[in-house]
Computed example of a mutant assay.
Amino acid sequence: MSDAEHWDRRYLAEGPTPRQKVGPPEVFAAHAHAFPTTGFALDIACGQGRTAVWLAERGMAVHGVDVSAVAIAHAAAAARDRRVAGRCRFEVADLDGGLPAGPPADVIVCHLFRDERLDAALVTRLAPGGLLAIAALSEVGAAPGRFRVRAGELTTAFAALDVVAAGEGSGTAWLMGRRPASC
């Protein structure tokens, strides 16, 4: 079964995003003030658009991408329901081929998706001063696994960024970092 088929089945079973579930991922919620309210956002592996719609409600133009056509349909419906469809563009994209083309981003969100082949592209895609908010499953506080990052992996991978906040534990690693003007 392909990644797209796997995620399509999951999102069909899960159903659309409940209205009250729109918002920042829980791991970033305490730092929501650090997210910009204007500019352009890229939401990588956006799923059903919970974060993308939240960013649009804050005033950003958002491009959300996901491998699942079902998730993208749910995301577009959530944007229409919350009356921010004019600030959202959703696209089915397999990130195995790299990031989709587009302008520099003032914020990039990548929640619970990790592909180290995209690390350099994520940093390069950030506008100077842009914010990367990335979270991944972690071996810290959990058993090692195929999709889990090792202790310190995100901090090392994104050493070119100025860290705003970061943490590891309970099976999740996360980092929020800004691209310096000279990067």
Rank of each mutant, 00 (worst) to 15 (best):
E5W: 08
H6S: 14
H6F: 15
D8C: 04
L12H: 13
P18L: 10
Q20D: 15
G23N: 06
A30M: 07
H31N: 12
F35K: 04
G39R: 12
F40P: 03
F40D: 07
L42R: 08
A45Q: 01
G47P: 01
G49P: 04
T51F: 05
L55T: 04
L55G: 06
M60T: 01
G64M: 00
S68E: 10
A71E: 06
I72Q: 00
H74K: 03
H74I: 02
A75Q: 02
R83S: 15
C88S: 02
R89M: 11
R89V: 13
V92P: 07
A93G: 11
L95Q: 05
G102I: 01
P103N: 11
P104N: 13
P104Q: 13
V107W: 01
L112C: 04
E116F: 14
E116P: 15
L118R: 06
A121Y: 12
L122Q: 08
R125W: 07
G129I: 06
G130T: 02
L131Y: 02
I134R: 07
A136D: 00
S138D: 08
V149K: 11
A159Q: 13
L161E: 02
D162M: 13
V164S: 05
A165W: 05
G167T: 08
G169K: 10
L175N: 02
M176G: 01
P180K: 12
